Computed example of a mutant assay.
Amino acid sequence: MATSIKNKIKNIRELRNYTQQYMADQLGITQAGYSKIEKGKTIISYAKLVEISEIFEVSIEDIINFDSKKCIKSLNRVKDNNTVKFYNNCKVLKGLYEDKIKLLEKLLNKTEDELEYYKNRFGP
Rank of each mutant, 00 (worst) to 15 (best):
M1G: 15
M1K: 15
M1H: 14
A2W: 07
I5E: 14
N7F: 01
N7W: 03
K8H: 07
K8G: 01
I9Y: 10
R13K: 15
L15R: 12
L15N: 14
N17G: 07
M23L: 15
D25M: 09
L27C: 05
I29A: 05
I29P: 03
I29G: 03
I29M: 06
I29D: 06
I29E: 00
T30R: 11
T30S: 10
I37L: 06
E38Q: 04
K39L: 08
G40I: 07
K41V: 01
T42C: 04
T42N: 09
I43N: 06
S45G: 13
Y46H: 11
Y46W: 14
Y46D: 14
Y46Q: 08
V50G: 04
V50I: 10
V50P: 00
E51A: 11
I52P: 03
E54S: 09
I55Q: 12
F56S: 02
E57A: 00
V58N: 00
I60D: 01
I60C: 04
F66M: 13
D67F: 07
K69Y: 08
C71D: 06
I72W: 02
I72C: 05
K73F: 04
S74G: 00
N76C: 08
N76D: 12
N76I: 06
R77T: 08
R77S: 07
V78W: 05
K79F: 03
N82K: 13
F86A: 01
N88I: 11
N89E: 14
V92E: 02
L93P: 00
K94D: 04
G95R: 01
G95W: 00
L96Q: 13
Y97P: 01
E98F: 01
E98L: 10
K100N: 10
K100G: 04
I101W: 07
K102V: 09
K102S: 11
K102I: 06
L103T: 09
L103Q: 13
L104S: 06
L104H: 07
L107H: 05
K110R: 10
K110F: 01
T111A: 15
D113R: 14
L115R: 14
L115T: 09
Y117K: 10
K119A: 02
R121C: 00
R121P: 05
F122S: 04
F122P: 02
G123C: 05
G123V: 08
P124N: 15
